[in-house]
Design a binder for these strands. Structure first.
Length: 309
DNA sequence: AAGACGAAAGTGGTTGA
DNA sequence: TCAACAACTTTCGTCTT
């Protein structure tokens, strides 16, 4: 089997540090020293075959293309060639056999993309792929999202909703399931549906499919937001400590994680002398300046911080 | 002039009677 | 089903750097 040469990043282009951290579960490569996110589009190098029986476990060879959830029929169907030849390439002239082949082709087409559900799925999976590419999301997320969408179709949740809203919502949920959270605003920027509609649809499919998502933590957003703000690892660490402290003392309950992430980053940027404006932080974190100010006040009060610098 | 601050009203969702 | 409620946003006038 051919092994593809994967280009590995060994040095940070920003600070030239060789302290690179690769987090496979998050799909992000970050520089430990300056916090720059170097690559958030890692390809999962895991085995692509699946084991169904003991024999298969021993013998890992297989034929055919790997199963691909991004194709509406998972890439597993067989095509019937349009040419009237048999498996050895000999022409089929017998009229009975030929008309039989014709019928087979016709029914195969109907079975594959003939019904509206399958056609719907084909459009949706293409849309998921498009959004994922735009957002640079790893394959793992696309497949999780495709699976979710499939479940929505099976549960008849699409009726009355747009494909765009459901694909965007399933991508949003998939991101969080894979611990690569993206904000509704980020998903919305790549989707053909509005932020509110995506949020509504997300809540709906979560309820209908009884999906429990891992609790959102402000710390999960820190690395990405910090990098987008051009902050260094030191500042991010200060913010991270603050988040941990807040979580430990349950001072973050009832507060949106993005607001906490925004406020801690803002405070940290002031403390380390790498100040960012509230507006810059707000734009990156998907909250308003007012929310930053409110969290900021609460955090400074509850942690007894002194910001007179 | 840009940034920070805070009051007030509005939005969309959750909760509990 | 509806009102109360909490979190967050929008808007805007004012103060600070």
């Amino acid at each position: 089997m051919m092994t593809e040469e994967v280009e590995h990043i060994t040095k940070c282009p920003e600070c030239l540090s060789r302290n690179i951290d690769t987090d496979m579960t998050r799909g992000e490569t970050t520089c430990i020293d300056c916090g720059l996110v170097l690559d958030d589009n890692l390809i999962d190098p895991g085995a692509e075959w699946r084991i169904h029986t003991m024999e298969q476990g021993q013998d890992r060879s297989r034929t055919g293309a790997p199963m691909n959830t991004m194709l509406h029929d998972k890439g597993l169907s067989t095509d019937i060639d349009w040419q009237n030849r048999d498996y050895s390439g000999k022409k089929i002239n017998d009229s009975r056999t030929r008309s039989q082949l014709y019928r087979m082709r016709k029914w195969q087409k109907r079975a594959r993309i003939g019904n509206s559900q399958e056609r719907n799925l084909a459009v949706a999976l293409a849309e998921i792929d498009r959004m994922s590419s735009k957002l640079g999301l790893p394959k793992m997320v696309r497949e999780a999202s495709a699976d979710l969408y499939r479940k929505c179709v099976e549960a008849n949740l699409i009726r009355g909703r747009s494909i765009d809203a459901v694909t965007a919502a399933s991508l949003y949920v998939a991101c969080r399931q894979c611990n690569i959270p993206r904000t509704l605003g980020e998903i919305g920027s790549a989707a053909r549906a509005g932020r509110k509609e995506i949020g509504r649809t997300e809540r709906f499919i979560k309820r209908e499919l009884k999906i429990r998502l891992p609790v959102q933590r402000a710390a999960d957003y820190l690395a990405r937001f910090s990098s987008m703000l051009g902050l260094d690892a030191q500042t991010e660490l200060v913010a991270r400590r603050m988040c941990d402290e807040l979580e430990l003392r349950e001072l973050d309950s009832g507060r949106g994680p993005m607001g906490i992430a925004a406020a801690t980053l803002y405070i940290a940027s002031v403390q380390t002398g790498r100040r960012r404006t509230q507006k810059d932080v707000a734009d990156v974190c998907g909250v308003t300046e007012v929310t930053i100010r409110n969290r900021y006040k609460e955090i400074v009060n509850s942690l007894n911080l002194d910001l007179t610098i």
